[in-house]
Design a protein around this nucleic acid. Structure first.
Lengths: 74, 74
DNA sequence: GTGTGACTAGAAGTCCGTT
DNA sequence: CAACGGACTTCTAGTCACA
């Protein structure tokens, strides 16, 4: 299980939660959580390795716990 | 709720889990997960902002899921 | 056995744009 | 609306000597 796989699981779950909550654009959501649109894009594609602070920030923006956000990572 | 507080919650939980699993020294555990002793120390004290890769690595070393490792973060 | 400050290389994260 | 690239600044990863 590579690190890249973990990031992908995280990214795909983020994308799922974002769309589920009605954020149809990465840009609107990025602005909502105070991050850059290209950065959210990179995370969702599994290319980025976000820090704990960023994970918490995104979780709050989705109104889920950090544990729920990383729940799909094995 | 500052970012520093999140890191502390994470660090304290890590320390708790580490000791609970019989790793009496940071050094032994650090070697077990392939990280530096002083780095683990920094995380446990909330001074570090670990990336997703590091979180996953530590979770595996503790034989818990990443979700369990971040469970105490609000 | 742990806390701490300092350090360098490299990655995180931003901002501009194009496809 | 999203993927992707380049260039940029800020910060983390990883390590050390020392308290």
């Amino acid at each position: 299980m590579s690190e890249f796989t973990h990031r992908q699981a995280f990214g795909e779950h983020l994308r799922h939660l974002r769309q589920e909550q009605g954020w149809s654009s990465q840009e609107d959501f990025a602005h909502h959580v105070g991050l850059d649109r290209t950065y959210i894009s990179g995370i969702e594609r599994g290319r980025r390795n976000p820090t704990l602070d960023i994970i918490v920030k995104i979780a709050h923006g989705l109104q889920v716990t950090p544990a729920q956000l990383v729940a799909t990572i094995k």
